[in-house]
Design a protein around this nucleic acid. Structure first.
Length: 895
RNA sequence: GGGCGAAUAGCUCAGCUGGUUCAGAGCGCCUGCCUUACACGCAGGAUGUCGGGGGUUCGAAUCCCUCUUCGCCCACCA
């Protein structure tokens, strides 16, 4: 700790060592903080488990930085803090990755067979070694890695089975024959949420179906003509006069040459299109319902990979659905049965993993009955148990729950939790058994059983994570201690996949919501507001940023660029613009710390407490009192902002305090005292060290590395001490010194006024000038910091009370104190007149509007008294400044 | 089709409960400085119809209405 610090902060030299040290010391464990006496509940955040094979991208960076800031803040506030990490087996996504690798080798999963394929996925998963967790360490995430789970672990797999079996026993899991969303590329069913609706420019074809007995036709409209191969009826509205006579008659389905009835059904909207709808029960959910009501046959005309099946005429068999579409349309056209084609914009579902157009398909799947689970979840929102940040996201949640549909949970994949259902193969028994344990024989007849081939939706394991990761269904200590958690940090698009489902499962299985605060941050976008993505090539690699600018810079930029509920915009073409501010800030802090450290000479006197050597109030200079008050204000602002999830404001408050107050003013102010030219070095050191210490702590949640590196170097730190578990600074009523804030503010004004005059007249930096401060209310305060003003404004002398008229630069402080910098013929009187004139004009306008406001009886009588009083004070201050300036102009001889 | 959000300096954005943070920050730009913590720095400076229009109010960047332009979410009008 004694080696001299480099003048430039080099994050890559210290970050990994610091991180390793934190981790070794167990600082990320909830046991790292001694529980406070009032024993608040532990603070728990469940990390959204990244895909086990994922590489860290900016979305992860943002999401995990937010969580880390929150958990570090709460840890320092003395709560037992647990940030529980894990990885997700991510069924489809991971299976797809491995299938692509196989394809490159010229194989499919079917060549390998199920068992070998799953082994292959496991070895892939082991080989990638959840690299993303290492990457999360690189950005400083303080998760408790000793508790890391994987959704396909034995424990979590047990929880999945337990949940499935319980829900089945309660009648909430059932097997059904319905239209589901099918991905013809992934060859699996998808939930409604996994089929992403996207607006596309399509067409709507109007097709004529002739009446079987001749005498005209009915025109139907469709966006998917190929499905007509499976039509088994045409439906019209029962009250539709146009078609009343046709109901019950038969149509000859063109191309296929099948007779189909015209049926009447309320679901048909007579106002849309021709008012007649082709009915394809096997390929459309609405048609499926119509088919049920009218007992229509379902003809599935497609294979799993969306080619036309053997149920269609020979010439279509094997055609891809989109080729079949063209073929069908051209046959209609050739037969003169194509009425018209219109452009049509409509929403089409796409697979959320491979983006293939989803095909509605009739099949047997397992479902979760959602309405009974949604009811309490909705209630928890309505009764205020749940808090959404930003608030409006709560309405998205509620709207989704109100319209919730049953959840299709079976997937025709090989990678995932096998559905715990066994079918008896004995013909006369045929019992279906749902079991927590693998079955080798039918419990009913002892005959052979076959396990359901399908696996469960990935989200069926993740929705249990808030308790399954703590050992449920076992009653573990962790479960008792850490459930329910507190905050869930996620992106809005995950609300329906994960957030709401966790709330439902938490209420159902644990009787309590899994967390009470749901913080939904924005999306990371480029400057064209496009989402960062691999395919667009507009991504920024967080690890590259860490390498070039440091993890703290990355985190600072993400946090500072994000107000509640807004997106984070970063420029992939200009990393410098996005990340240099954070790097610069870290460097600024580093150098401030370096300066303070290099000026220590022995023990630092405490600012408070019973210590014999405590700094007494009367020993503090105005500047000391001011920085202590500013520090206290920063504590209040930052603490409140962190608590309200306004991380950008917390960062800004600390930034301002460190850069604008501590570095720009206080450190400059104390230099003479430190160098021994002026007495009081010990007090200055004490104040500097202790306010800097507060600054480090306030900043630590956002910039953990540089703050820790500096904090540990200060004298009196035990070898094992870490800022990450040091107590959060408390506001101190005695520190809030409004007099000091006002008086030092005048010192800053005076320095600024002289600097402005010097710059205006290009006074050489090495050249000192004289300044005169006229009689005014602030003279006494300014005298206290006379030396500071003289040094910072480069004055040869600062005089009080002498005449402030003459040839030179002029200014007035906000309390009306006149300032004069005699410059003789160094200035151009005309220029000074113009300068003062502009300032006078500004004050004129302020005074005028203020007078108008105050002479308005409506205002003085209706506005609150304190507001009126403040406005009066403003007027008198501006009026005073104006008259001082006006006098100065007169004596300068301005026109 | 329904719902939501955004529009403020050249760029990215703060501005919360209407009234000194009221017109701000960072970046960029201009001028001068290698002043014994920091040139990733210091000092000074320029730049705005607060998207348009209307309204409420003593007072509007802030609240309401409307229009325009972007963005997001939801949706079985085939």
């Amino acid at each position: 700790m004694t080696e001299p610090l480099a003048p430039q902060y080099n994050p890559s030299a210290i970050e990994s060592a610091l991180y390793a040290w934190w981790e070794e010391r167990g600082l990320f464990s909830p046991d790292a903080t001694a529980p406070s006496p009032d024993r608040p509940r532990p603070y728990v955040i469940m990390m959204p488990p990244p895909n086990v094979t994922a590489a860290l991208h900016m979305g992860h960076g943002l999401n995990n930085t937010v969580q880390d800031v929150l958990v570090r803040f709460e840890r320092m506030r003395g709560r037992e803090a647990l940030w529980l990490p894990g990885t997700d087996h991510a069924g489809i996504a991971t299976q797809n990755v491995v299938e692509r690798i196989l394809a490159a080798e010229g194989h499919t999963r079917f060549d390998l067979g199920r068992e070998a394929f799953v082994d292959r996925v496991w070895s892939y998963v082991h080989a990638t070694g959840a690299a993303i967790l290492t990457q999360l360490r690189a950005i400083g995430c303080s998760a408790d890695w000793t508790r890391t789970y994987f959704t396909l672990d034995e424990g979590l797999s047990g929880a999945v089975r337990e949940a499935f079996v319980r829900l089945y026993d309660e009648g909430l899991v059932y097997r059904g024959h319905y239209i589901i969303n099918w991905c013809p590329r992934c060859l699996t069913a998808l939930s409604n949420e996994e089929a992403e609706k996207e607006e596309v420019e399509g067409h709507i074809w109007h097709l004529r179906y002739p009446l079987a007995d001749g005498g005209g036709h009915v025109t139907v409209a469709t966006t998917r003509p190929e499905t007509m191969l499976g039509d088994t009826a045409v439906a019209v509205h029962p009250d539709d006069e146009r078609y009343r006579a046709l109901v019950g008659r038969r149509l000859r389905l063109p191309v296929v040459d099948r007779l189909i009835p015209v049926v009447a059904d309320d679901a048909v909207d007579p106002a849309f299109g021709s008012g007649a709808v082709k009915v394809t029960p096997a390929h459309d959910p609405a048609d499926f319902e119509i088919g049920r009501r009218h007992d229509l046959p379902s003809i599935d005309v497609m294979t799993p990979d969306a080619r036309i099946s053997l149920t269609a005429p020979d010439r279509f068999q094997g055609l891809d659905r989109f080729d079949a579409r063209k073929a069908v349309v051209s046959e209609f056209e050739a037969a003169g049965l194509l009425d018209k084609v219109e452009a049509h914009r409509h929403a089409v579902g796409h697979c959320y993993r491979c983006h293939t157009v989803v095909e509605p398909r009739l099949s047997d799947q397992w479902f979760v009955r959602m309405a009974p689970l949604a009811r309490p979840a909705l209630e928890a929102y309505r009764d205020g148990t749940l808090t959404f940040i930003p608030e409006r996201r709560g309405e998205d949640y509620a709207t989704w729950l109100e319209g919730i549909r049953d959840w299709c949970i079976s997937r025709q994949l090989w990678w995932g939790h096998r559905i715990p259902v066994w079918y008896c193969q004995t013909e006369r028994c045929g019992v279906t058994s749902v079991s927590r344990h693998d079955l080798s024989a039918c419990p009913a007849c002892g005959g052979e059983v076959r396990q359901d081939e399908d696996v469960l939706d990935t989200w069926f394991s993740s929705w249990l994570v808030p308790f399954s990761s703590l050992g449920w269904p076992e009653r573990t200590k962790d479960l008792a201690r850490f459930y329910p958690g507190h905050t869930l940090v996620s992106a809005p698009e995950i609300i329906f996949f994960w957030v709401s489902r966790m709330i439902m499962s938490g209420l159902h299985f644990m009787g309590e919501v899994p967390y009470t605060h749901i913080y939904l941050h924005g999306t990371v976008r480029d400057t064209q507001h496009r989402k960062m993505s691999k395919s667009l090539g507009n991504g920024i690699d967080p690890l590259e940023v860490v390498e070039r600018y440091g993890a703290d810079a990355l985190r600072y930029s993400l946090v500072a660029g994000m107000a509640v509920g807004t997106d984070v915009i970063l420029d992939p073409r200009d990393l410098e613009a996005s990340f240099a501010p954070g790097r610069n800030f870290a460097n600024k802090l580093w150098n401030a710390g370096r300066f303070i450290l290099s000026n220590l000479d022995g023990p630092v006197r405490p600012l408070a407490g019973r210590h014999r050597d405590v700094v007494r109030r009367e020993e503090l200079s105005l500047a000391d009192r001011w920085i202590i008050a500013r520090c206290d204000a920063a504590v209040r602002e930052a603490t409140e902002a962190y608590q309200r999830f306004r991380l950008n404001e917390a960062a800004a408050a600390v930034y301002r305090f460190i850069w604008s107050d501590l570095a720009d003013w206080y450190i400059e102010q104390i230099k003479p005292r430190l160098y021994g030219d002026v007495p009081g070095g010990d007090v200055a050191r004490a104040v500097a060290v202790q306010t800097f210490d507060v600054a480090l702590r306030l900043l630590h949640p956002v910039m953990p590395f540089v703050t820790e590196a500096l904090w540990r170097r200060f004298p009196g730190r035990a070898d094992e001490a870490s800022v990450s578990v040091s107590p959060w600074p408390r506001p101190d009523a005695r520190a809030a010194d409004t007099d000091a804030l006002r008086d030092f503010g005048l010192v800053q004004e005076l320095v600024g006024a002289v600097r402005g005059i010097r710059a205006e007249y290009a006074i050489q930096p090495g050249h000192t000038v004289r300044a005169v401060v006229g009689a005014g209310t602030s003279s006494a305060s300014l005298r206290l910091e006379e030396a500071t003003v003289a040094r910072l404004a480069k004055l040869s002398a600062l005089e009080f009370g002498a005449a402030t008229e003459g040839v030179g630069g002029h200014a007035v402080l906000s309390d009306g104190t006149p300032v004069f910098v005699p410059l003789g013929n160094a200035i151009d009187v005309g220029r000074e007149c113009a300068r003062l004139g502009a300032e006078l004009g500004r004050l004129d306008r302020l005074v005028d509007s203020q007078e108008k406001k105050l002479s308005n009886g409506q205002f003085t009588s209706r506005a609150p008294a304190d507001v009126v009083e403040r406005e009066r004070e403003k007027l008198s201050s501006w009026g005073e400044q104006r008259s001082v300036l006006a006098r100065k102009r007169e004596t300068l001889g301005c026109r």
